[in-house]
Amino acid sequence: MTVSALSQLVDPAACPRLVLKVGSALLVERGGSMRRAWLEALVGEIAEARARGQQVVVVSSGAIALGAARLGLAGGGRANLADAQAAAAVGQIALAGAWAELLEARGLVAAQLLLTLDDLEDRRRYLNASSTIARLLDQGAVPVINENDSVATAEIRFGDNDRLAARVAQAAGGDAVVLLSDVDGLFDRDPKDPAAELVREVQGIDEAVRAMATGGSGSGMGSGGMVSKLEAAEIAGRAGIALAIVNGTRERPLATAIDADSGTVFLPQRRDGGRKVWLGGRIAPAGVLTVDAGCADALGSGSSLLAAGVVGVDGEFARGDLVTIHSAKGDRLAQGLVEYTAAECRAIAGRKAGEQAALLGYAPRAAVVHRDHMVLL
Rank of each mutant, 00 (worst) to 15 (best):
Q8L: 10
V10P: 05
V19H: 05
V19S: 10
S24I: 06
S24K: 14
L26E: 06
E29R: 09
R30C: 01
R35F: 06
E40Y: 00
R50G: 02
A51F: 03
Q55P: 06
Q55L: 12
V56I: 14
G62C: 09
A63Q: 03
A63C: 00
L71R: 13
A79H: 13
L81Y: 12
A82C: 05
A86R: 15
A89K: 04
V90F: 05
I93P: 00
A94N: 03
L95R: 12
A96W: 03
G97F: 03
A98H: 14
G107T: 07
G107K: 05
Q112G: 08
L113S: 09
D119H: 13
L120K: 08
E121R: 11
E121P: 09
R125I: 10
L127N: 11
T132K: 13
D138N: 12
Q139W: 14
A141C: 06
P143G: 10
I145F: 06
I145P: 01
E147M: 01
T153V: 08
T153L: 05
A154V: 08
I156F: 03
R157F: 08
G159Y: 11
D160V: 02
D160Q: 02
A166V: 15
A166T: 03
R167E: 10
G174S: 10
V178R: 03
V178A: 03
S181A: 09
V183C: 05
D184Q: 05
G185K: 01
L186N: 13
L198V: 09
V199N: 13
R200H: 15
E201K: 13
R210Q: 14
R210W: 14
A211E: 12
G216I: 13
G216C: 04
S219A: 12
G220C: 09
A233E: 14
A242R: 07
A244E: 00
I245T: 04
V246H: 02
N247G: 12
N247V: 05
G248I: 01
R250W: 06
E251P: 02
R252T: 05
L254Y: 00
L254W: 00
T256Y: 09
G263C: 15
G263T: 02
F266P: 07
Q269L: 12
Q269D: 14
R270G: 03
R271V: 03
G274D: 11
K276P: 07
V277Q: 15
I283E: 10
G287W: 01
V288T: 05
L289T: 08
A293N: 07
C295M: 15
S303R: 13
S303Q: 14
L305M: 05
L305V: 08
L306P: 01
V310S: 00
F317P: 09
G320K: 11
H326F: 05
S327M: 11
A328V: 12
G330E: 12
A334H: 04
V338A: 03
Y340H: 07
E344A: 11
A347Y: 08
G350H: 10
G354R: 13
Q356I: 02
L360D: 08
G361P: 13
P364T: 12
V368E: 07
R371D: 04
R371A: 02
V375Q: 04
V375W: 01
L377Q: 11
